[in-house]
């Protein structure tokens, strides 16, 4: 932990208090917190923060709902379930950059399949990747497609820990099948859902490759994530001091979000089944 987490954090904190760029010959020179003042005034960072958070919130939200539906379906026994279970994992197994390239092609105007469908439906070109208000939804769609299988798998595992006896007993007592979902399945699945949310939020908040390939942060910078901004500063601009600052600030923001969520969960009592 100290090696892989503690040391980099210390190093980043130290670097964020220094200027280290081509202008200093890449030597760190102390600059008394100028990076942090610049960050506070940097509208682009805050825009990226909002974008990163809304991307994470919407994609994780959609993924949980879809994954729950798929897990419930795949938990039933029906012919060909094994094949479908294996197939449903496919998007998750693909390298992100490859699938992002695929989606860039799908959204391509006018040759992509999506535009072709719109065209045959008599619609005007959608230009989904050329709209600063809507393009971020395209990144969400690609992310949901890719990572829903991961949560599905997690929830499926959760579903299989629920003993069948519970359902039999519920039916014996006169409960309806539909009620079993809210009375048994969801409460017992809650810990797994929370773990899924936690994993995926941490991942989505650090989103980089998907957006880099699909939109390059555009149009007009509307889809740029914090990780991308940090990367630009380090690897393109060779401004390591500010890059470390952006990275740390992103980490602090994410920690705040997760901390708030954890406190709210604690108060709501949803975590209780985890402890028993």
């Amino acid at each position: 932990m100290a090696m892989v987490f503690g040391w980099p954090m210390l190093r980043y904190s130290w670097l964020s208090m220094h200027a280290s760029s081509v202008l200093t010959g890449l030597e760190p020179v102390s600059n008394q917190g100028a990076n942090w003042i610049r960050l506070l005034e940097d509208a682009r960072f805050w825009q990226d923060a909002v974008q990163t958070l809304r991307f994470a919130a919407l994609s994780v939200g959609l993924e949980i709902v879809l994954a729950l539906a798929m897990a419930l379906l795949l938990d039933q026994s029906w012919r060909g379930r094994g094949v479908v279970r294996a197939l449903s994992l496919l998007p998750w197994a693909l390298p992100t950059t490859m699938m992002a390239l695929g989606w860039r092609w799908i959204f391509n105007t006018p040759y992509g399949p999506l535009e072709q469908m719109a065209q045959s439906a008599g619609l005007s070109p959608l230009n989904l990747l050329s709209n600063p208000d809507w393009t971020w939804l395209a990144t969400v769609i690609a992310d949901v497609w890719k990572t829903t299988p991961f949560i599905t798998l997690l929830l499926l595992a959760g579903l299989q820990t629920i003993p069948d006896d519970l359902y039999s007993a519920f039916r014996l007592e006169g409960g309806k099948t539909r009620q079993a979902l809210t009375a048994i399945t969801l409460p017992l699945l809650t810990p797994y859902i929370l773990i899924g949310i936690l994993f995926r939020t941490a991942q989505a908040a650090g989103v980089f490759d998907l957006i880099q390939v699909l939109t390059g942060g555009g149009p007009a910078g509307s889809t740029e994530s914090i990780a991308q901004y940090a990367y630009l500063n380090a690897m393109r601009f060779l401004d390591f001091g500010y890059s470390a600052t952006v990275m740390l600030a992103g980490f602090v923001l994410l920690s705040l979000v997760i901390f708030t969520a954890a406190v709210l969960l604690q108060i709501s009592g949803l975590l209780r089944p985890l402890k028993s």
């Binding site: 081509v22 202008l23 050329s130 709209n131 600063p132 555009g218 149009p219 007009a220 910078g221 630009l232 393109r236 601009f237 060779l238 401004d239």
Partner: peptide
Amino acid sequence: TPLYAQMSDLLQRQLSGLLTEKR
């Protein structure tokens, strides 16, 4: 200039806004 990457990044963002947002 060593700052070319930053300058070009600023330009790209503005132009992209010009083309897609009718800025």
